Simulated scan of single mutants.
Amino acid sequence: MHLLDAIRDAFALLLSGNAELWQVIWVSLKTTVLALLLATPASVIFGYLIAARTFAGRRVAIWLVQTSLSLPTVLIGLLLYLMLSRQGPLGDFRWLFSQSGIIAGQMLIALPVMTAFTLAAVQAADNRLAETAVTLGASPWRVMRTVLYEVRFGVMAAIISGFGRVISEVGCAIMVGGNIEGDTRTITTAIALQTSKGEFAQGIALGMVLVAIALLINAALVLLQGDAHAARGAT
């Protein structure tokens, strides 16, 4: 199949409302969003605490967070597979080859990304902000909220980076989800499958969806940052 023919067929699939195609997209979005909703609070809090607190082993914690960014997702998938298998310690959950298993894997993938980006954002903040809040009698919880609000765009960038890392990964999703049609087949695993079968149109169509999602999310962040800069300029 020529490239132009494959692209034409891909657009036709998207516009035709192909049920199989949109089911794959729905599963990807559903699992990714749920994983981020569950992982974001812990990631943001961990990133803030590591950046803002002084404690024994802080350098080791930062090193571990940064090192975890380099872990291949297929390794995370392998470890989670062993944990969720019948002989594994979490086998009773019966999450292997299910959407719950995919969500668990995506959480493990997103956690270090969002933690590292939040840590960097908090470290870049003006230290006088937290010091002033403490001087005014703010509680530790209030200080954290104040600092995180100040670096909110950095935190948003962390969440977007986590989203991009999760929705575009394929290794963990295949190993833990099993690429089951209509249940655990995601955009990336479907692309891998269809390409291996020589059916490029569906793979290209799903790739277009991935690119469109990335463009929309990053455009929203750019617009919000632009509005914030404009508001500061007006004051």
Rank of each mutant, 00 (worst) to 15 (best):
F93P: 15
W95F: 12
W95S: 02
F97N: 12
S98N: 05
S98D: 11
S98G: 08
Q99C: 03
S100N: 15
S100E: 11
G101R: 00
G101N: 03
G101E: 02
A104Y: 03
G105Q: 00
Q106D: 03
Q106F: 01
M107D: 04
L108Q: 02
L108F: 03
L111D: 08
P112H: 10
P112N: 10
M114Y: 11
A116I: 04
A116R: 05
F117R: 06
F117E: 07
T118I: 02
L119I: 04
L119F: 09
A120C: 10
A120P: 08
A120H: 06
A120L: 06
A120F: 04
A121T: 00
A121L: 00
A121Q: 02
A124P: 03
A124E: 12
A124H: 09
D126F: 03
N127W: 08
N127S: 14
R128F: 00
E131A: 08
T132M: 07
A133L: 01
A133K: 03
V134D: 15
V134G: 12
V134W: 15
T135A: 07
T135C: 01
L136R: 02
G137M: 00
G137T: 01
A138P: 11
A138E: 06
S139E: 09
S139C: 06
R142W: 02
V143N: 01
M144N: 07
M144R: 09
M144L: 04
T146Q: 04
V147W: 07
V147R: 10
V147D: 13
L148I: 12
Y149C: 07
E150G: 06
E150N: 11
V151W: 10
V151A: 02
V151C: 07
R152I: 06
V155C: 09
V155F: 08
A158Q: 11
A158V: 11
A158W: 08
S161F: 14
S161V: 05
G164A: 05
R165H: 07
I167N: 15
S168Q: 13
E169W: 08
V170D: 13
V170A: 14
G171Y: 07
C172P: 00
A173K: 02
I174Q: 15
M175F: 15
M175S: 15
V176Y: 10
V176A: 05
G177P: 12
N179P: 15
I180H: 10
I180S: 03
G182H: 05
G182F: 03
D183S: 12
T184N: 05
T184Q: 04
I187K: 07
I187C: 12
T188E: 12
T188Q: 14
T188W: 14
A190S: 15
A192G: 04
L193V: 04
Q194V: 00
Q194R: 13
T195C: 04
S196K: 04
S196D: 11
K197T: 01
K197Q: 12
K197Y: 08
E199F: 10
F200V: 04
A201I: 00
A201D: 05
L206H: 13
G207V: 03
G207I: 03
M208A: 12
V209M: 11
V211C: 06
A214W: 03
A214L: 01
L215D: 05
I217A: 13
A219F: 10
A220N: 08
L221P: 15
V222H: 14
V222I: 09
V222S: 14
L223G: 10
A228H: 05
